[in-house]
Amino acid sequence: MARSKFMHPVMAGARRVQRGISLVFALMGLVVLTLGAVALLRSIDTGLMVLGNLGFKQDTLAAASVGTESAINWIQGSTIDTLTKTQAALGYSAVAMANLEAAGPRADADPTSKAVLVDWLGNDCNVPGLKGREVTVCNLPGFLPDVGQNKIRYYITRLCANEGLPDSLNDCVKPVVLSTTGTTSQRGALGYGSSVRFTDISPGTYFRIITRVEGVRGTVSYTETLVHF
């Protein structure tokens, strides 16, 4: 029996439908692959951005050590007369400021309180976040030459209640040291029942060094260091 050269219309329509369904699934698979590729690229871009920001942050922290060392050198190279008086133009206060907001206005500060700030940006402490608070003290920081693209500023406060010598009439924060009682092997170590004890007879005074570094893409880092001499 000879086979007809022409396919039955019903069978031909079914095959066309099958080919159409295959195309739909192929297009769906292409869309899924495209979305997956876009998501992968975005995740890679986000990861690279995070790594870049971490690198910028590390760079500013490294530059902050330069500012801190410069502040320490300034303290060591200054005379007693210089350190017992506030040097406003040099970024130094001989008096501790407990209410100093070194990193800018605090978000949880009382709206009726007075603000004591550091003029890091050189705009008379006209910074956002004050929420109507009055700036009573705007301290000038010490400046250093830029290191690469990092702008370094520091501010030093001596932890004393008043200006003048750190004597019995001026309450200053002094380091706690170990007494010299006991044997040589005991000094510098603490042990149960030992004769080594803490005293506060050290003549040194603590200085607080606050360093601010502004780097690439507006990255800002603050560090705080306590030293005594």
Rank of each mutant, 00 (worst) to 15 (best):
V196R: 13
T184E: 15
T199M: 13
G218R: 14
N170Q: 09
S202E: 05
P128M: 09
N123V: 12
R208G: 02
L190I: 06
K131A: 14
N126I: 10
V216F: 07
D167I: 05
N162R: 15
V177L: 04
T184C: 05
T199A: 12
K174P: 02
E134D: 14
T157E: 08
G122T: 05
E134S: 13
N150C: 15
R133Y: 07
I152Q: 00
Q149D: 13
T219M: 09
L130A: 08
G142K: 03
L165F: 08
D124K: 10
L178G: 10
P166S: 03
R197I: 02
V216T: 09
T205R: 01
V173C: 03
G182F: 04
C125Q: 02
I201D: 12
D110S: 06
V177A: 02
K174L: 05
T157D: 01
L159M: 12
D124M: 10
R212V: 01
V118N: 01
I156Q: 00
E134A: 11
T180Y: 05
Y222Q: 07
A189S: 12
D167M: 06
G215C: 02
N126T: 13
V176L: 15
L144I: 06
A109W: 04
T219E: 04
G132H: 09
N170T: 14
R187H: 11
I210E: 12
R153Q: 09
K114V: 11
S202K: 05
V213G: 01
T184D: 15
C138D: 03
Y192H: 06
T136D: 13
Y222P: 09
V135G: 12
